[in-house]
């Protein structure tokens, strides 16, 4: 079964907390990784790799640049996760 959007956002919040030290409650859909969450381009690679493992998705490098906000990432993961029927 797939992860719900809530599970994805909660998971991203934990990942961002681990990598950038931002409190999980501050990691909201409209937040920009770079501008709001102190995730620079190198740390974004860490976020992506951690998200890939956690949600069993592949996020190619060329798609990472489109993931500006937590909402962008959550939508991408929801659309690309492998359905575990």
């Amino acid at each position: 079964m797939a992860f719900t959007q809530e599970e994805i956002v909660d998971g991203l919040a934990e990942i961002v907390n681990e990598i950038a030290g931002i409190p999980t409650e501050d990691v909201q859909l409209d937040k920009s990784f770079t501008d709001d969450l102190d995730v620079d381009s190198l740390s974004m690679v860490e976020v992506v790799v951690a998200a890939e493992e956690r949600f069993d998705v592949k996020i190619p490098d060329e798609d990472v640049k489109n993931l500006k906000t937590v909402g962008d990432a959550a939508d991408y993961i929801a659309q690309h996760q492998v359905s575990k029927a």
């Binding site: 190198l42 740390s43 690679v45 860490e46 790799v49 890939e52």
Partner: peptide, 10 residues
């Protein structure tokens, strides 16, 4: 490969 830290060089 994918798990090598992007912070490795700095």
């Amino acid at each position: 490969v994918r798990r090598v830290s992007p912070h490795t060089v700095p």
